[in-house]
Design a protein around this nucleic acid. Structure first.
Length: 586
RNA sequence: GGCCCCGUCGUCUAGUCCGGUCUAGGACACCAGGUUUUCAUCCUGGUAACACGGGUUCGAAUCCCGUCGGGGUCACCA
């Protein structure tokens, strides 16, 4: 039971806007959402953008988009659709009351709380420069003594002395004075965790600024002040924050405000045990790029040319998107991990980048329900053997007692299996809609297929029928059906083994196909049942199993030995193309 | 390195709090067989784990200690 079962549950998701929503962040958001919803509480979305160097308005917008897509609605937070649609103006175009959910816009509050701490004697000024502190840490490390901040100097400075330094425009930070006692955190997942006083040090809560006024608050302080100010009752976050929690509860105690309940959940890693970070995309793209350059003359310029060519746009257009030779060189030299560049490289080289952000999974054809379902299984499990469930189930069953303690590895194969399963089970119309949306999405990726299938609902319907049981992602059908969009006279067997299906037996298969073409010419209407009937009849006349007819035909029209059932494939291709492709086979 | 958290099939996990019902269950992956015009779907079956060592107990995956292993954290980042 929550410690204060009488009061309303308030949870929050507090991302820092440095990019799209990370998959781990999505799980945190999901659990906080579920807990608030289950208990009829309030779910707050609060943007922690006190690090001005890394935070951007666009990222805040992106995170909001991801939350919307996932269907995680919040009761308090930014307006999801402010009057100004420009992502770069997302924060500034929020109404004042919504701007309160961006930490960068509520500085007055931190000053107020700082004053409270100051009156209680819980904070002090520290005039040491970052360089000084760094040197002290290094000296301590060299001497193998604990690298702990020593408050003696700052604490012993008289008020007059401090004023003198302030008047001299010396920058200073405010530090929080840790109490002289061990701190125990009562974690809802981990149990009681006690940290000894000697392990705790006084930490900066307000950055410096030159004018003698306090600067922006640090994460620990802003986080606590906001949780206090917003009456957050339950803080559910990743285990990487566990060692921060003693600092946080000490501040709550100093403020005389009841602590929220804390619950730290296990971390999510790549299968190889490394962190799932945005960098993984850059790493993958860089490796592929370097490999390609090595095999193609060793010039990075050639890669840029290939990227320009692939995107069928002018070089200047790409440069506007940050794709320039200097940027590329920086990227290749590991001096930058730009995600856009990684995307361009992957597109041009035809490689897949690891999905890390919610956006990646969305783009790659994962269903939001599946993503939420899978990610919630990483670190949480419902009672019984239930494993496939929807958001409603999670909302009705989520509890801290189901959260595990050990870290998990993200298994894409399982996610993929869940996704394919959900696709197979969705209503056909829904699948058709997904396919149409993706086929008609802006971009050059599916131009040929789009041209072939056009806006014809009947064709989309056939495509859906052909691929629903074969698709693991919503993108799979479009990739697998790409052969449909190729020029009819350019279909070639993809390798020697495949070609043999066509040309073995002294060309008997080819002769057979020529006769089959005659037969197909008469098929009307050109739909799967009619095609099927015609082929069965043809096979019967030849006294052969239909497989011996279908397989050479498949190679002739697709260039491979794999496709959906042959009647569906032919119907999708169209009569003209089918006959042309048979004519050019061999 | 200090401190903190964790350690059940390859992976995610159930079981651990309240020792016996656990010859350890499920899912994904893998393997084999069946259905099928290819692929896929579908069906059936199978391989596979309590990190190690002590202790407590009639009895330990479950309790205690130690070892080993993994992770987190040690900023004017969050």
């Amino acid at each position: 039971m929550p410690k204060d079962s009488g009061t309303k549950v308030v949870t929050r998701f507090a991302p820092s806007p440095t990019g799209y929503l990370h998959i781990g962040g999505a799980r945190t958001a999901l659990f906080n959402w579920a807990y608030a919803r289950r208990h009829g509480g309030t779910f707050i979305l609060r943007v922690e953008d006190t690090d001005v160097a890394r935070s951007t308005s666009r990222s805040s917008w992106q995170i909001v988009q991801d939350m919307l897509w996932l269907g995680l609605d919040w009761d308090k937070g930014p307006l999801s659709h402010p009057s100004n649609p420009d992502a770069d103006e997302f924060v500034s175009s929020q109404p004042p009351e919504n701007q309160r959910y961006f930490q960068s816009r509520r500085g007055d509050l931190y000053i107020e709380y700082l004053e409270r701490l100051r009156k209680g004697g819980h904070v002090y000024r520290c005039f040491k420069t970052p360089e000084q502190l760094k040197a002290e840490r290094e000296a301590a490390r060299a001497a193998k003594s604990p690298e702990k901040y020593d408050p003696t100097e700052s604490l012993s400075r008289s008020e007059a002395d401090q004023q003198r330094l302030i008047d001299a425009k010396k920058p200073f930070v405010w530090r929080f004075r840790m109490p002289e006692a061990d701190v125990t955190v009562n974690d809802l997942v981990l149990g009681d965790v006690t940290i000894k006083r000697e392990e705790l040090e006084d930490f900066v809560i307000m950055r410096s600024s030159v004018d003698g006024q306090p600067g922006l608050p640090m994460f620990h302080f802003a986080n606590v002040v906001d949780d206090a100010d917003m009456s957050v009752t339950h803080v559910l976050r990743a285990q990487e924050h566990l060692m921060n929690t003693p600092k946080h509860v000490a501040m709550f105690d100093a403020l005389g405000i009841a602590r929220p309940a804390y619950a730290h959940m296990p971390l999510i890693f790549n299968p190889d045990g490394t962190k799932m970070s945005k960098r993984d995309k850059a790493k993958t793209a860089r490796a592929a790029a370097q490999d390609w350059i090595k095999k193609n003359g060793g010039k990075a310029e050639a890669l840029l040319a290939k990227i320009v060519n692939h995107n069928e746009v002018r070089k200047s257009t790409l440069a506007g998107l940050g794709m320039t030779q200097p940027a590329l060189d920086l990227f290749l030299a590991k001096k930058s991990d730009d995600a856009n560049l990684a995307g361009f490289i992957a597109g041009a080289l035809g490689i897949a980048l690891p999905e890390i952000d919610v956006k990646d999974f969305r783009d790659n054809g994962y269903l939001k329900d599946v993503l939420l379902n899978y990610v919630s299984l990483l670190g949480w499990s419902p009672k019984g053997d239930v494993e496939r469930f929807d958001l409603d189930f999670l909302r009705d069953n989520f509890d801290f007692s189901g959260i595990g303690k050990s870290n998990a590895k993200f298994d894409r194969a399982k996610l993929l299996a869940f996704n394919g399963d959900r696709i197979a089970k969705m209503p056909r119309e829904e699948f058709e809609k997904h396919l149409a949306d993706r086929l008609n999405a802006p971009g050059t990726e599916h131009v040929n297929l789009r041209a072939k299938l056009g806006q014809d609902p009947a064709k989309i319907s056939l495509l859906a029928a052909a691929y629903q049981l074969r698709a693991k992602t919503l993108n799979d059908p479009l990739k697998a059906a790409a052969f449909l969009g190729e020029p009819d006279d350019a279909i070639k067997a993809k390798d020697e083994k495949t070609r043999k299906v066509l040309v073995d037996n002294d060309g008997a298969a080819l002769q057979m196909l020529t006769r089959l073409a005659e037969c197909l010419k008469a098929v009307e209407p050109w739909d799967p049942p009619s095609i099927h009937t015609a082929m069965e009849k043809f096979a019967a006349e030849l006294g052969k199993p239909i497989g011996e007819i279908a397989q050479p035909l498949r190679v002739a029209i697709t260039g491979t030995t794999v496709s959906p059932p042959i009647d569906l494939t032919l119907a999708l291709l169209g009569k003209e193309s089918t006959l042309t492709r048979i004519r050019h086979a061999g």
